[in-house]
Design a protein around this nucleic acid. Structure first.
Ligand SMILES: [Zn+2]
Ligand SMILES: [Zn+2]
Ligand SMILES: [Zn+2]
Ligand SMILES: [Zn+2]
Lengths: 139, 139
DNA sequence: ATTAACATGATAAAGCATCTCATTTCACTC
DNA sequence: GAGTGAAATGAGATGCTTTATCATGTTAAT
């Protein structure tokens, strides 16, 4: 339950925080910008401020509830943190985002880091391009 | 010669453009932000505007002379385009950047894209962390 | 040298994100 | 359930990076 997540993060359980987590968990587009979230909630008739959305997302990120990604051009996007790590393919035509995780790549990153005496704390792998089939925004 | 590069890009050969390309080619820190470049040139006694730096870099990027990267936090960084592609390890402690290229990872990216009917037009792979040896800013 | 197109740079403006602060809400006690 | 202090909210101001505007200056070809 979202309430437990918020409490575990050492934060008060408030309406804005619940609304944001609920939205992130129940939208079909996993990756939303702060402004997306703000506008969707406003559209739902909820009262919320953009500053609150940014604040909550930053706190959720610090607590490991949410991940932030900087896709090319524009705002950062946020998604509910999933158990297993993944990277992203981003369609420059439709905005569609596909998640993937490849153990060969992940392993290779660790090897390269080790070779260079580098301790990895995080990484970002994003493939930009376009999907050749057209089942993009259909159902 | 930088003059040829600029002409080939369909741009007029001007002092600011020459200075910027020259700086990018002759500094030991390959990866510089627009403001870095602006300040270094000012410090050299050159007269230049920040807007010109941004404009020139954007034009150089469009011409393939320069690559832009969005490392975490803050400004984009620019570097002279090298013949062969590479990715980056970024030290969060010192700012040191190490370039690498791993054919296994590159190949795997192509395979994954193909599997998902995705045509890659570009990608970004950045490892964040810290170097464990301390030969960071020495020599 | 003339000229027309292009480039420059100071400043304004845009876009994204964070900060400020007066007011409200939460969580806990009695 | 009312009282209380701490934390959170939201409107707006502010900050930071980047782009747009536009009057002036420069380039390159005649
Ligand atoms: Zn990964
Ligand atoms: Zn994702
Ligand atoms: Zn690569
Ligand atoms: Zn590089």
């Amino acid at each position: 339950m979202e309430e437990q997540d918020i409490k575990r993060a050492g934060l008060k359980v408030t309406q804005p925080r619940l609304k944001i987590l609920d939205l992130l968990g129940n939208t079909r587009e996993r990756h939303l910008s702060a402004e997306d979230i703000y506008k969707i909630l406003l559209g739902n008739g909820d009262e919320i401020g953009l500053a609150t959305v940014y604040r909550a997302l930053t706190q959720f990120e610090a607590a490991g509830l949410v991940n932030r990604h900087h896709f090319e051009g524009g705002q950062a996007v946020f998604e509910l943190a999933s158990e297993e790590h993944h990277d992203h393919m981003v369609c420059m035509r439709t905005g569609r985002v596909l998640e993937f995780c490849d153990e060969i790549i992940e392993q290779r990153q660790r090897e390269l880091a080790h070779q260079h005496n580098f301790r990895i704390t995080g990484h970002s792998l994003i493939l930009y391009g376009e999907f050749l089939d057209n089942n993009d925004e259909k159902a």
